[in-house]
Design a protein around this nucleic acid. Structure first.
Length: 629
DNA sequence: ATCGGGACTTGAACGGATAATG
DNA sequence: CATTATCCGTTCAAGTCCCGAT
């Protein structure tokens, strides 16, 4: 029984046909004469209204079987391209692999002690620390210039653990972080860094070799890249936003902390003198290695790269699920509109929450464990995060949302809502304290349960994928194909469409120093221009008509220049504070972009970086210009 | 039927490489 | 040609949501 998420069995016909045609072409080109074994394939297809008129291709042609090669070497050959064989996929949900071979993760080198003359000072006196404490001191020294080093929580967390690493003697002396002098260590590390820069070639060669050895695995006979083959080095946990654990030490991960997942006959050897914590052969998970992260008390995984077949399949499934929402969105919206009028409080809350998720692209907001920054999603919004205005700037029924979302990124937006939503919100907030939940009858789990009853497989996050992709499609649609338009113009249009989606998703980034300077210089120019205008206004023109006209012309010119500067500032502000890549990477169906590129004659590499091109090879190699989300 | 462990997706910041600029 | 801005891949934190144990 294929699960609802397994769209591979429910491959849209149009796509499967194109895919297969491409595959067969490829086969012919390579003149493979090898007889392929016949594989019975079940194509369980979801009824899809949009594709109903597409002619179905017979499934009778013989399909190749992918060879499972358990002995394939993971070194010295290039990764294969799985998407060329998409037509034979199936059963992705339960069984992730049949054979899996890798050499295990790469551990960071052991810590090397500082030279004797480089020591931490305490109250001006050099102090020789224990090995572990000295290493922690080097981590701290690297952060000296950063704002986080001034944070009290960070300093307190670091200092208490730092002291624990010291010997009795040192600990009894070292009582205050502010008396610890890390400057010498910092200077030493910086010099060391410069040395490495001079040996860059050598270092790059080293990394190349490491990647060749550790960077690939063999999965079901295909050679594929590993996303993160390096074990995270020990260091200081930073966290995002106001994290209560910032400054905590992340201990060194040893092979004894790592669990390996692989084929039974392909267990990698642990580094000399060590052993793995455990070895398992679990075919229902996609990770190659796992270890426990003590700070966040969760697991960290070594996984395949995003270019891998497994990840590609998941990506495709994700976008197909979001596309399927197109067919149901009308009735789903209808249903939550009706929830607004329900006599049942939970249903009304559910209706309004769903409205936020759909219209504002809020995340669902699961419950969080205690030691995390205080951030919110939809279901965890509190009274203090909302403000209701009967009237605001000429609009009736305005809701202002202001809270910290994922990664402590601020979400702040004013939204004009209808009467029902407004009254509902008012009643949800009535007689509550600022810290009380708005949707007290609702929880993320409940909401997702409801969603999956409206559409098989639907969860809250699908709305983000759906809305972002839909928006990109409609923005790009507005641009008619025009051969006279310059490439730069087209790229600009794409960037604007991309920026719209990013803004909708609230994908922000901290402006770089350079960007800040640029904004400041715009602001200065604007102030100067404003001043010039004011001055000009103050100086009375002489009564001569010529001079009056000149004066007016000059004023007009200055005002135009001011307007120009202001719009440039706006554009620069937007670009400098929006992260465009996150949506490209996670939310925008790449087939929309591929289709647009082929329609407008834009080379795909102008839009997708090398990494994105390998990630989305499954969409690019098909290059279906007629694709619509 | 609930709950928390577990697996995997999503996210901004970092820092090295490369391109643009004076 | 050196410096600075921008691009891009990497890193690792922080979400979502499933699933199996109870």
């Amino acid at each position: 029984m294929p699960s609802h998420r397994n769209l591979l069995n429910g491959w849209p016909y149009k796509f499967a046909a194109t895919r297969r045609a491409a595959f067969l072409r490829q086969q012919q080109q390579q003149q493979q004469e090898q007889q392929q074994q016949q594989q019975p394939e079940e194509e369980h297809v979801e009824p899809n209204e949009e594709d109903a008129d597409v002619e179905l291709e017979s499934d009778e042609e013989s399909l190749p079987i992918i060879q499972c090669d358990d002995t394939g070497s993971a070194v010295n050959s290039s990764p294969s391209t799985w998407h060329e064989q998409l037509s034979v996929m199936g059963n992705e949900d339960k069984i992730k692999w049949h054979s899996l071979q890798h050499v295990g993760p790469l551990f960071p080198p052991p810590y090397v002690r500082l030279p004797d003359q480089v020591q931490m000072l305490y109250n001006g006196q050099p102090m020789r620390l224990s090995l572990a404490a000295e290493e922690a001191a080097t981590w701290y020294a690297k952060l000296l210039g950063r704002p986080v080093a001034q944070n009290e929580i960070f300093r307190a967390n670091f200092f208490s653990q730092f002291r624990m690493l010291m010997g009795e003697n040192e600990r009894s002396i070292v009582q205050e972080l502010s008396l610890c002098g890390f400057e010498r260590i910092a200077q030493h590390l910086q010099r060391q860094g410069e040395d490495v820069t001079s040996r860059r070639q050598q270092q790059q060669r080293q990394q190349q070799l490491e990647q060749q050895h550790y960077g690939y695995c063999s999965i079901d006979g295909r050679l594929e890249r590993i996303g993160n083959y390096r074990i995270e080095p020990a260091g200081i946990f930073l966290g995002r936003g106001n994290h209560p654990l910032m400054g905590t030490l992340k201990p060194r991960i040893r092979p004894e902390d790592v669990t390996i997942n692989c084929s039974p006959l392909a267990v990698p050897a642990a580094p000399a003198g060590h052993h793995w914590q455990a070895v398992q052969h679990n075919q229902s998970v996609a990770w190659l290695a796992r270890w426990h992260d003590t700070v966040t008390s969760g697991y960290k995984y070594m996984l395949l790269s995003s270019a891998s077949r497994l990840q590609g399949i998941r990506d495709l499934n994700k976008f197909e699920l979001a596309r399927r929402l197109s067919n149901h969105i009308q009735s789903i919206r209808q249903s939550y509109w009706e929830d607004w009028k329900s006599p049942n409080l939970m249903q009304r809350q559910r209706g309004v929450a769903l409205y936020f998720i759909d219209r504002l692209m809020l995340r669902v907001g699961n419950d969080k464990s205690e030691n995390t920054a205080d951030t919110e999603g939809c279901c965890t919004l509190r009274v203090e995060h909302l403000q209701l205005f009967e009237q605001l700037q000429g609009s009736a029924h305005v809701v202002e949302l202001n809270f910290l979302g994922k990664d402590s990124i601020q979400f702040r937006r004013k939204l004009v809502v209808g009467q029902h939503v407004f009254e509902n919100l008012r009643s949800f907030m009535q007689h509550k304290q600022p810290k009380d939940l708005i949707f007290d009858q609702l929880a993320a789990k409940k909401l997702n349960q409801h969603l999956s009853s409206l559409m098989h497989g639907l969860t809250a996050k699908v709305f983000r994928t759906y809305n972002a992709s839909k928006l990109l499609q409609s923005c790009l649609d507005e641009l008619a194909p025009d051969v006279t338009r310059s490439l730069k113009d087209k790229l600009n249009a794409y960037t604007i469409a991309n920026a719209n989606a990013a803004k909708f998703c609230n994908h922000q980034r901290a402006p770089t120093k350079a960007a800040k300077n640029k904004l400041n210089s715009f602001k200065r120019a604007i102030r100067a221009k404003q001043l010039a205008i004011d001055n000009l206004r103050r100086t009375r023109p002489t009564t001569l008509p010529v001079s009056t006209a000149n004066h007016a012309r000059r004023l007009m010119q200055l005002q135009n220049e001011l307007a120009m500067l202001e719009s440039q500032l706006n554009a620069a502000t937007l670009r400098s504070s929006l992260a465009l890549n996150t949506s490209k990477m996670n939310y925008l169906d790449p087939r929309i972009t591929v289709a647009w590129c082929s329609k407008h004659g834009v080379p795909i590499e102008k839009i997708f970086s090398a990494a994105l091109r390998t990630k989305f090879d499954w969409a690019i190699s098909v290059a279906d210009a007629s694709f619509r989300f």
